[in-house]
Nucleic acid binder design. Structure first.
Length: 205
DNA sequence: TGCCAGGCCCTCTTTAGGGCCTT
């Protein structure tokens, strides 16, 4: 595993729960190596049934578009190859990890890397943000955006820029650079009120 | 026919409830 290589991913899906029969309909991802976007992955996938009008409207992904897409099995096999053994990041990772695991389980594959969450990290680092929705955080961090949210690749690209902004904020405020993935996961599990103490302690080491 | 999740986090908490976030 390349310690400095992470894949930031985002799923569009037919609903909120794979346990209730919901499936992935699009995957988007970018790979960061040493803090720079090096490559990307995007694919629509046909879940095998019609998606609701709500999902068509919410994502802009129509049933007609999905009818011409490859199957979930084909796409997820390609995506599993793309991920390799890299660590993974998503905004509200508990959601995307559930769909990733469910789709990979269907084809007898699984991930190797660890997952981290830009939502949890932003709640600790951008504590003053009015909202921790992805779009609101992009505005809060003054990240340039065309506003085209709710497509997988675009959301993954925005999440990668948010992730870099969070790491940059930690570097500037605490003079902490090159945090390990394990350290970032530790931050995500630390109560908000204890973040200053933790990061100042690390900065002194 | 009708209904539909789950993890995190705060607080008027911990023998619980409700808001936030994801599609």
């Amino acid at each position: 595993m390349r310690a400095d290589s992470v894949v930031i991913l985002d799923f569009e899906t037919t609903g909120l729960s794979p346990d209730q029969g919901d499936r992935a309909i699009e995957i988007g991802a970018v790979r960061l190596i040493n803090g720079e976007v090096k490559d990307q992955f995007q694919a629509l996938m046909d879940p095998g049934f019609r998606v609701s009008s709500f999902i068509e409207s919410y994502t802009g992904i129509s049933n007609q578009m999905l009818s011409q897409a490859e199957s979930c099995k084909q796409v997820m096999n390609e995506f599993a190859d793309y991920i390799g053994d890299d660590n993974l990041i998503a905004h509200n990772a508990s959601f995307d990890s559930r769909f990733l695991n469910a789709e990979l389980m269907r084809i007898g594959r699984q991930t190797v890397g660890n997952f981290s969450c830009s939502l949890l990290l932003s709640r600790r680092i951008f504590q003053d943000a009015d909202s921790h929705k992805l779009g609101e955080l992009i505005r809060y961090a003054n990240i340039p955006s065309s506003g085209g949210f709710h497509r997988a690749l675009y959301d993954a690209q925005m999440t990668s820029q948010l992730w870099l902004a969070l790491l940059n904020d930690i570097a500037v405020r605490y003079d902490l650079h090159d945090l390990s993935f394990a350290q970032i996961q530790k931050i995500c599990k630390t109560p908000k009120g204890a973040i200053d103490k933790l990061l100042n302690k690390w900065a002194q080491i």
